[in-house]
Design a protein around this nucleic acid. Structure first.
Lengths: 195, 195
DNA sequence: CCTAGAATACCGACCGGTCGGTAGCTCACC
DNA sequence: GGTGAGCTACCGACCGGTCGGTATTCTAGG
């Protein structure tokens, strides 16, 4: 019985490689042979490290959420000023998604219905928690600035949408740099919700 | 050889049903037997109407783009005022995506890499043309209002992102109506790019 | 330091099942 | 009696996953 319980995946390059391949071709279109080949193994060899295809995806997604907690939520929660918190969240979220490593995070954005049952429920719950976190940041800024005519949930989804859509079109080395993108979206959103 | 060339699909309910099923379960996870069953046929019966699974998807996506041309691009192009054009585009785009029929359009948003070769190139080109259209609308508004510090391409992608992300969270009958959504996003984007 | 033996990493071969797609037939209707 | 729509039955390829076995590495006792 392979020892794939808990967070044993740290430092295991197989999961990084798998995340890369799945990010490129999609979960359904990626066979376990593909993953094995990319990792320099046979399929049977891969199954020594992984319990099932679904557990492989779950581990990747769960690690992607761990990364988000650590790189976005934690640093932002230590800040005082609501505007500073929201601005930092936008910058950190965008950099997390667009930095070329971090395939685990980008996989989260398009592999929604691939998981089933308990695993799916857990990931969905973590994603919802993140949405509530963003909505809270937006709500605090709106309250501080006395703008009660804007729906904070709608605004939060708008913000998440324009940020998460970036992986569809952003290309490193293209005409728009990450810094420009951060500045542009920050301005659009702040001006957008504060008149 | 079945006659599936050209735009023979009009009025053929098979494509509507297929679009619905593919929209619900995803292209890769949907087998031709699934589509056949949903259409009340056997798989062989379905293949009498359809040349291949890929051609089925292509036809659906192409029709989705036809719909977009007709419902969004054409009406907007007949308007004069740049601000009116942009505002109308936002409203029409959102309503097209969120209305419960129009599965063909929503399929476009998440079935990117499923097509290959020439078919993929054609759909990609139509999608790019639409992006250029949106970017042009944004650019005209920025020019009219004398805002040259905002990058119109970046702004266009931000707008497309927040609109297209809606299908991930919007549920008819939920706390946010389509009209509220249109008003909210219109305000965020106009305020966002015009200070 | 050597070595027995346990644990780990990995492989070739294979399994049951499902996939996209096809051949060849029937049958209703003009 | 020809034609299009539909069916049953089937194909080869590939899928996720497993099995028995084999190198390789780690560890403990003398």
């Amino acid at each position: 019985m392979p020892s794939t319980r808990g967070k044993a995946r740290l430092h295991n390059p197989i999961y990084d490689i798998a995340a890369k391949v799945i990010h490129l071709r999609g979960y359904d279109s990626t066979s376990m042979s593909d993953v094995a080949q990319a990792a320099g193994l046979t399929k049977a060899g891969l199954y020594h490290h992984v319990a099932s295809k679904e557990q492989l995806l779950y581990t990747i997604l769960d690690y992607g959420m761990d990364l988000t907690d650590e790189v976005v939520i934690k640093p932002v929660q230590s800040l005082r000023d609501p505007r500073e918190r929201l601005q930092q969240m936008i910058e950190r979220h965008l950099r997390l998604i667009l930095q070329e490593r971090n395939h685990e995070v980008t996989v989260i954005l398009h592999e929604d219905k691939s998981l089933k049952g308990a695993m799916r429920r857990k990931i969905t719950e973590r994603k919802k928690a993140y949405i509530r976190f963003v909505e809270g940041l937006v709500r605090d800024v709106l309250k501080q600035q006395g703008r009660k005519e804007m729906n904070p949930r709608l605004a939060a989804f708008a913000l998440l949408g324009m940020m998460n859509w970036c992986y569809q079109w952003y290309r490193p080395g293209g005409p728009i740099s990450i810094s420009q993108l951060v500045r542009g979206m920050t301005r659009i959103f702040f001006n957008g919700i504060l008149r």
